[in-house]
């Protein structure tokens, strides 16, 4: 039995916010109470957070029932600022992997370097999970969270479970 558990998380709220981070960052921080993330990082407490997705794109994580209000607030705060804010809650699925050797389990599926040095806690990477695009972040020392498009949820869930079942091959020193 593997020591890494795979959980398909309950649907949460997600907003894609595109624009110049210098102009839209404060508004994003306002609706999440999370710091504006630097490149390749994620901030917040896991329930409300901000992920750096691209030089002009932030991912806002928040409870599903706060999305509508957050969009209204973003629209008001960013009135006149060139930006785009869209509710993508239903477009994506989210997973949590937890346990000893979690880096190894996800490393089987992505070319991204998941060593402790390259992928510390708080680091977020958009990458490939086997055949499909996904984003992964190091939430805690032994916990990686992943999001993928909802259309490939079953595929990604099977991937993660199969990878976890066979156990860690030992790419990285176990935590």
């Amino acid at each position: 039995m593997s020591e890494v558990t795979v959980t398909r998380m309950a649907p949460g709220g997600m907003i894609t916010l595109r624009g110049d981070p210098a102009e839209v960052g404060a508004a994003a921080a306002g609706v999440t109470r999370a710091e504006v993330p630097g490149p390749l990082t994620i901030t917040g407490d896991g329930v409300r957070g901000l992920g750096w997705m691209a030089p002009d794109e932030l991912l806002i994580l928040l409870p599903a029932d706060e999305v509508a209000e957050a969009l209204e607030r973003l629209g008001a705060d960013l009135d006149g600022v060139h930006h785009l804010a869209v509710d993508v809650s239903d477009a994506r699925s989210r997973f949590a992997l937890e346990g000893r050797g979690v880096r190894d389990i996800v490393q089987k599926l992505t070319p991204a370097d998941l060593s402790e040095a390259a992928f510390p806690v708080g680091c977020l990477r958009r990458t490939r999970l086997a055949q499909v695009a996904g984003a992964i972040w190091m939430a805690e020392e032994s916990r990686i969270e992943a999001i993928c498009f909802r259309s490939v949820t079953d595929y990604v869930e099977t991937l993660l479970r199969t990878a976890a079942e066979a156990g860690p091959p030992g790419f990285h020193a176990p935590l």
Binding site: P39, A54, P111, A112, T127, R128
Partner: peptide, 10 residues
Amino acid sequence: ACGVMADETE
């Protein structure tokens, strides 16, 4: 753009 060392398959 993001600073990542990207593998060909990305």
